[in-house]
């Protein structure tokens, strides 16, 4: 079963490449547009997940599971980033009573 490679009808890497690029760009636009810090963190999660999609597509294309291991590590990094980001957000909320990113301008000269 491992030797013969049956192609899944109609699915190409090209399609998943364009889909994940579009998702990544939507995440980047959201990160630049929104001022709510929690929505900005969610847009980062969306960008990470679009990269996961492309990695799984390449893993299916090359027939090895190595890329799916990297998806695990990306999930680990995303979980760590979400916990630290949310605790920073709670600190910002305690200081400003708001989670607008523009209010954090204490370092501005």
């Amino acid at each position: 079963m491992a030797g013969q490679l049956a192609t899944i009808q109609g699915l190409t890497v090209d399609y998943y490449f364009i889909l994940s690029t579009v998702l990544f760009s939507i995440g980047a636009i959201g990160l630049l547009t929104r001022k709510n810090m929690i929505v900005m963190l969610m847009c980062i999660e969306l960008m990470l997940n679009s990269v996961n999609l492309l990695l799984v597509a390449f893993s299916s294309y090359f027939g090895t599971g190595d890329a799916q291991i990297f998806v695990f590590f990306i999930v680990v990094v995303a979980a760590a980033e979400a916990t630290v980001g949310l605790s920073i957000l709670i600190m910002a909320y305690r200081n400003n009573r708001n989670i607008e990113a523009d209010l954090l301008n204490n370092l501005k000269g």
Binding site: M1, A2, L5, A6, T7, I8, Q9, G10, L11, T12, V13, D14, Y16, F17, V56, A57, S59, S60, Y61, G63, T64, G65, D66, Q68, I69, F72
Partner: peptide
Amino acid sequence: FNEAIHENYSGLVENLGNTLFTK
């Protein structure tokens, strides 16, 4: 990238666990 995606079995739990806990 015009080639089609192959049907493979590397995404199953057994193969993935073998790769994760050795390599």
